[in-house]
Amino acid sequence: MKKFLKAEEIFFRVLMFLSTTLIGTVLFLIVFSVIKNGLPYLSWEMISEVPSGGYYFGKEGGILNAIVGTVYLSLGSTLLAFFVGLPVALMMNVHLVRYQRFVNGIRLILDLLWGIPSIVYGAFGFTLMVYLGIRASLLAGIITVTIFIIPIMIRAMDEALKTAPRGLLEAALSLGSTRSEISYRVFFKQCIPGMVTAILLSFGRAAGDVASVLFTAGFTDAIPTSINQPAATLPLAIFFQLSSPISEVRHRAYAAAVVLFGIILVISLLTRIISGKYKKNRINF
């Protein structure tokens, strides 16, 4: 009996160790295979030029339009989401702190919204576009992506604000601050690393998502000069180029994937550095 127990434990420990290793290996494999296939085709021309005439048949050009489009779209929507999301997150933790049941209800709704697939947001954005009468454009894309990342941003900010000690609120109130002052001057400052993390997380989501911009942002070879023009995004460019029958074009998709991967990795690295650095400035109770 004892021997059997020991054997069972060892067996499962080995399985557990294997599955943990597997997850690490898969990440390594993904990074390795994307870089191995993409890097040889990555050139300065790729990231500094817009597609020229025969680009989609394998001629010259690059994906600058998609890179710039992604940056515009993500920046615009992150900014908009920030102006809507920050007040909600602060309100949940400063104004409504006495109504925990209500706040938990809001959290549930936000979690549900977070779980909705981005293609549904894309379809909804399309409906909204038809309703408002705007064409597929940078503006429509920004609106859709904003709606998509608002729940993500609020929940991430909320998680950070939740950790702020309650005594901070009481102390500030007793000194005569208004609630809005407490929100911005005390709670926001206390939780800056969490806020930056939330913003970067949303930016990463906005930059990497295809399904929500598929209907709404359109696609173009030019760099958009106004908000009413369509814009290409990097994930969409990868997706389109991969479906091409010409291998030259597909190779460029791999190279574009390396660029996108690089952007996402830099964001994730920045998040780690910033949240580590600002931790020192916090008031600890």
Binding site: T20, G204, L242, A257
Partner: peptide, 28 residues
């Protein structure tokens, strides 16, 4: 040390855009 490695691994996996997963799917 395992946790120290696995935390960023999980974070990065969660942050990879779905297109990249698609590219990896086609490649591998």
């Amino acid at each position: 040390w395992v946790l120290k490695i696995m935390h960023p691994v999980i974070d990065i996996l969660a942050g990879i855009p779905s297109v990249i997963y698609g590219v990896w799917g086609i490649l591998v």
